[in-house]
Amino acid sequence: MKILVCISNVPDTTSKINFSGDNKSFDKNGVQFVINPWDEYALTRAIELKEAKGGTVTVLNVGEADAEPNIRKALAIGADDAIRVNADPKDAFFVAQQIAAIARQNNYDMILMGKESIDYNGSQVHNMVGEMLGIPSIVPASKLDLVDDSTARLEREIEGGKEVVEVKLPFVASAQQPMSEPRIPNMRGIMTARTKPLQVVEPVAGETKADYVSFSKPEKKGGVKMIDAENAGELITLLRNEAKVL
């Protein structure tokens, strides 16, 4: 079983988000980067499947050199090797083209990633990769199991319920809870990760189709209006007459 897990390098969930003075780019100053939390569900499930059935887990990141500490972290968690496509991940279409190019060279049995990244929240790359490769994409999947060596069974979340889907390998799937419980790397993992192969490749020619022009932050809230717990019912009146939401 050859599994490819795609990871993004994103600002930590607790980061304050700031932009450059001209609001044209994200300000990385003082920001800690982590493996996109949704991608961690995919990574952990891939490692669990490898442990149960044998095979390899390759981690792929489309990004610049500053993503390498988190690629090493993925290796420390249990991936076998890694590929970094040395490029600024400008938009989803470009990233999907890079992933598809790597996939075409390597015949992976499954390509996994998170349901979306917590920075750009696009939720596009997985379906684009599936479409580019002409294989099914199951998005978002909350459960992934192998039925036999050539078939997987997934649960796919839809609004108001879920679908049970069985597909032949290869396929693309994106992960969300409760697919797996992310792991913290142990000391042995961290030591062995240092010597695991991390291959850096140059991008294939790709297109961007969405240009980020500028960023802004939402207006600050006006402050909280407190209501005395004794007169809690007053809240309902305010929600109807003042906030006009009831």
Binding site: I17, Y120, N121, D211, Y212, V213, S216, K217, P218
Partner: peptide, 15 residues
């Protein structure tokens, strides 16, 4: 579009 989990907005030109 809403980005950074609702903490910011981005203007995107669809080309």
């Amino acid at each position: 579009r809403s980005v950074f989990s609702g903490k910011a907005f981005a203007e995107v030109n669809l080309t």
